[in-house]
Design a protein around this nucleic acid. Structure first.
Lengths: 206, 206
DNA sequence: CCAGATGCTATAGCACCGTTAAAGCTATAT
DNA sequence: ATATAGCTTTAACGGTGCTATAGCATCTGG
């Protein structure tokens, strides 16, 4: 009987430790950048010692994965919120715009994602986010409006494009990126991969 | 008089050391990958000790930059060889295909480029390669066939796309990349950014 | 021909990194 | 009260990029 309460207490304490470590890691990454992050600095900052962090997260990649997963889960929520229209092309564009905006707003996290990818890891939420493209792309393919042999290639091409845009933008912030870049890029990829809907009975045009 | 010969001898020896170090570095990177490369391993492999390498290259980033620069200079030569046609769109596609092929054939070097970019460095030859896109893009813009406000945005968009394609492909080799990916991707970016030439007097069509 | 300057190389060490074995400690369960 | 389980710490290992210092040739000016 008293076991459940104590277990709850334990788990709460455990969760507290995890969260305060993750919070410190988040702050450290945002503050000193990807390269300025180290387990030792994190230990010094969050008040726990190194083995404690390792006890809770096991590994540096796993800790970063948890960090990225938390942030990318917000992106997933935004993305599922986008899918509401009856025009798959519009949905897709909304999703892509959301991802690009997310990447531009969280450059450190996206650089972290690039590093993780290079080491062979990918936070589940990032994979989920990418998988969400499948829905509108599948719809476009069903309507014969996709210039790609199948869904997977469509997803790969579009995700590659978005990834390159964000990754280059976040890693080379010193270049003078034209403010019209995002629109031009989105117009480009949509114009190239999506066959614009043929003449139809006029729908609502804003 | 004897000075010039001795100077030449010195420079030759200096060049020999540099080249043998670079050769070992090249082999090491190709063999053990980006993460398996370290200055100490390089020292053990090339026969020279650490301070010697640092004497010749000063820095790890600078050494890698020299390594990348050598390889990317080959790409530049291929690219300048492409620019010969009278159809700027064809030229651009040839260049992009060459870059993608180069990236897929040299995954370690491209991953190295990604790392360098993230640290804020870029080998001159890579910059040159990117700059070579300007010529056909400028031509397309002059003909009113470019869906971009200016050349710079066009270059940024196209380079982002290519970069994302190669970077994702080289860092996640385990994914099952459809063989038709490259063609689909090139068709996509060209179809989106380049306005296909309007009806004209029929030219040679292969 | 010889002293001195020049430049390449090696020894040894710095501070940092990710990671972990071993022991200590505290709070719960019996 | 004792044992058990889990969180935390001390201390260390091997690795990293990098460098101050010294040794060693070689070439140069006298």
């Amino acid at each position: 009987m008293s076991m459940s309460t104590s277990n709850a207490r334990r788990e709460r304490q455990r969760g507290e430790a995890r969260r305060s470590i993750l919070d410190a890691a988040e702050a450290l990454v945002v503050e000193r950048g990807v390269e300025g992050f180290s387990m030792r600095r994190l230990a010094a900052r969050c008040g726990y010692t190194l083995p404690t962090i390792y006890h809770h997260f096991g590994d540096k990649p796993r800790l970063l994965e948890a960090l990225l997963d938390a942030r990318f889960r917000e992106l997933v929520e935004v993305l599922v919120g986008v899918t509401a229209s009856d025009d798959a092309s519009r949905d897709l564009r909304g999703m892509l715009a959301a991802v690009v905006e997310f990447g531009f707003d969280n450059p450190s996290h996206y650089q972290l994602l690039v590093s993780a990818l290079q080491e062979g890891n990918e936070p589940p939420a990032a994979e989920e986010a990418r998988a969400l493209f499948e829905a509108p792309i599948l719809a476009l393919l069903a309507d014969g409006r996709l210039r790609a042999p199948d869904v997977e290639v469509g997803v790969q091409v579009i995700w590659s494009f978005i990834h390159g845009l964000i990754s280059l933008r976040t890693s080379r912030a010193d270049w003078d990126w034209h403010p019209q870049l995002i629109d031009t890029a989105l117009d480009g990829i949509l114009g190239g991969v999506v066959i614009q809907s043929p003449a139809r009975p006029a729908e609502i045009r804003s």
